[in-house]
Amino acid sequence: MFVGLALLAAAIEAAVGYPDRLFRAIRHPVTWIARVITWGDRTWNSAGDSDLQQRLQGVALLLLLVAGSLLTGLLISALLHLVLPAIVAFVVLAVLASTLLAQRSLDSHVAAVAEALEGKGLAAARAAVAMIVGRDTKDLDEAGISRAAIESLAESFSDGVVAPLLWMAVAGLPGALAYKAINTADSMIGHKTPRHLHFGWAAARADDLVNLPASRLAALWLALAALLRPGLSARQACMAAWQDAGRHDSPNAGWPEAAMAGALGVRLMGPRSYDGERVDGPWLGRGRTIATARDIRSALSLYRTACGLQMAVLLLVLLALILTM
């Protein structure tokens, strides 16, 4: 049942995304989770607490988020199946679950960067890429903008598409909600800043754990997708992921980013700037450092193929489960 739910949710989200009108009316489920995290950070995270107190309070907030997400998902599922015919409840549940995926919105945001580079100039491209990356963008040239967009596409494919879909297939709506709670907590408080070093420790470690299988799976989907895209290299995607993923400062993000770099024949990461401070990060991949809007288009093509492969595998798994029933 959960594999079918994940497949239908992915198809719905790919077709319609999350409508802007709905977002303006009720926001997005992630924004509701973010409000709880903001409340917990404001209420439980005090500079006067010891490091141990901050860490324990961060653990408590994470447990509250996960338990609340699991309970919410279970209650919604139970209520729908109680008041609606089974097939209708299943479809409604898939519609709700589709809001936790980001296939279409990720595609749109990255495509906007390519469109800006192709016809609107560097200033518009910098503004577009600033919507999806955390680094400084005001001084980026075309190559820097292109690399930043491609890196964001690869990393977000893992934690915005593959991971929630994986946990949805394993544990239904409750599993996907719990994943999004952990991932959102990591993005908000899982930083090594003085305020969040200890309070966000549990969120950061939990996010590393739940994203571990998805990051490797995302690299696999990208490598397999490269087999189907003329001019891209599955072999180089595999080699880059194997050799360079561990050079990334994240235990997970390096896998899809390195696979993307290898497939496209470019190098990603490298030196960049955050809040005015230069970070001399390692390069991922063995290709060229010069990237263009054309490379973003190739990355998007690879990404769309990988999303399609993922859905095809879900369909095959569902058929196999049906045949064994």
Score class of each variant (00 low, 15 high):
L8G: 01
A14D: 11
Y18N: 09
D20A: 12
R21L: 10
R24K: 09
A25F: 12
R27Q: 15
R27P: 07
A34R: 12
A34P: 08
R35G: 15
I37W: 04
G40V: 05
G40A: 04
G40K: 03
D41L: 11
T43N: 11
W44E: 02
N45P: 01
S46Y: 09
S46F: 10
Q54G: 15
R55M: 13
Q57E: 12
Q57F: 12
Q57W: 14
V59M: 13
L62K: 09
L65M: 13
V66N: 04
V66G: 04
S69Y: 02
G73V: 09
I76G: 08
A78S: 15
A78V: 01
H81E: 14
V83D: 11
P85H: 11
A89T: 01
A89V: 03
F90L: 04
V91Y: 07
V92W: 04
V95E: 04
V95F: 15
L96A: 14
Q103K: 11
D107Y: 15
V110M: 04
E115K: 10
A116D: 05
K120P: 00
A123G: 15
A125H: 00
A127F: 01
V129I: 00
A130E: 04
I132Y: 03
R135M: 00
T137V: 11
L140G: 00
L140R: 00
G144C: 00
R147D: 00
E155M: 02
E155N: 03
F157L: 02
V161R: 09
L165W: 05
W167L: 05
A169P: 12
V170S: 04
A171H: 02
G172M: 05
A185V: 05
A185W: 06
D186I: 02
M188L: 09
I189H: 02
H191W: 11
T193V: 06
R195Q: 14
H198V: 01
F199L: 03
R205D: 05
N211G: 06
L212S: 15
A214K: 07
A223F: 04
A223I: 04
A223P: 06
L228H: 14
R229K: 13
G231R: 07
G231F: 07
Q243C: 13
D244F: 11
A245H: 02
G254H: 10
W255K: 02
M260L: 06
M260T: 09
A263T: 07
V266M: 01
R267C: 11
R272C: 08
S273D: 05
S273V: 12
G276D: 09
E277W: 07
V279C: 05
W283G: 03
W283T: 06
G287I: 02
T289M: 10
A291S: 14
A291Y: 01
S301H: 14
L302N: 09
A306Q: 05
M311Y: 03
A312I: 08
L314K: 01
L315V: 13
L319T: 13
A320Y: 10
A320H: 10
L321M: 15
L321F: 13
M325V: 15
